[in-house]
Simulated scan of single mutants.
Amino acid sequence: MSLHIPPVHVPPDGGEPVYLVGDTYTTLLKATHTNGELSLVEAIMPADAGPPPHTHHGESETFIVMDGQLVITAGDEKYEVEAGGVVYVPKGVRHSFRNLSRTKPARIYFLYTPGGMDAMFTEIGTPGVRGQVGPSLNEVDVKAMAAVADKYGFTFD
Rank of each mutant, 00 (worst) to 15 (best):
K143N: 03
F97Y: 14
F121C: 01
G125Q: 00
Y25N: 07
A83H: 09
N35I: 11
F121I: 08
A146C: 09
F97W: 15
Y25C: 09
G22V: 07
K30N: 06
G131P: 05
E16T: 01
I44Q: 02
L100S: 05
I124H: 03
F63S: 07
L3Y: 10
T24Y: 09
K143F: 10
M45H: 07
A144S: 13
V18W: 05
Y25D: 07
K78S: 15
H33I: 01
S60M: 04
Y152L: 02
T26M: 02
G22P: 01
T34C: 04
A43E: 15
E61D: 08
G22M: 02
A83N: 05
E16G: 05
D150W: 00
I72P: 00
I44K: 00
E37K: 13
Q69I: 05
G36L: 15
T24Q: 04
K91L: 13
D67A: 07
V81W: 12
E123R: 07
D67F: 12
I5P: 07
V148S: 08
S60K: 09
F63K: 07
A149N: 03
Y88I: 12
L137C: 01
L111E: 03
P17S: 10
H57C: 04
D150N: 11
T103N: 06
L3G: 12
T32C: 09
V8P: 10
P53G: 08
Y88E: 13
A147W: 07
R107S: 11
G125W: 07
D13R: 06
L137N: 13
L70C: 11
V133K: 03
H54R: 10
P17N: 04
E123Q: 02
P105E: 10
T26G: 03
D13Y: 01
V41K: 01
R102Q: 14
A149M: 06
Y152C: 00
A31L: 08
K91C: 08
Q132I: 03
I72G: 03
I64H: 15
G84H: 11
V140D: 15
N35V: 12
T155M: 10
S96L: 05
N99K: 12
A106S: 14
P127C: 10
P135G: 13
V133F: 02
P6S: 14
A83W: 02
A119T: 09
A146L: 09
I64N: 03
L28H: 01
H33A: 09
T155L: 06
D67Q: 12
H54C: 12
G116L: 01
E139S: 11
V86M: 08
Y109S: 06
T62I: 11
V140G: 10
G15A: 07
A147C: 04
F156I: 15
A119S: 06
E59N: 15
L111V: 15
V129Y: 04
V133E: 14
Y88M: 15
T122G: 04
G14A: 04
T34G: 08
R107Q: 05
V129N: 04
E37H: 15
V148L: 05
T62M: 09
T55H: 06
L29I: 11
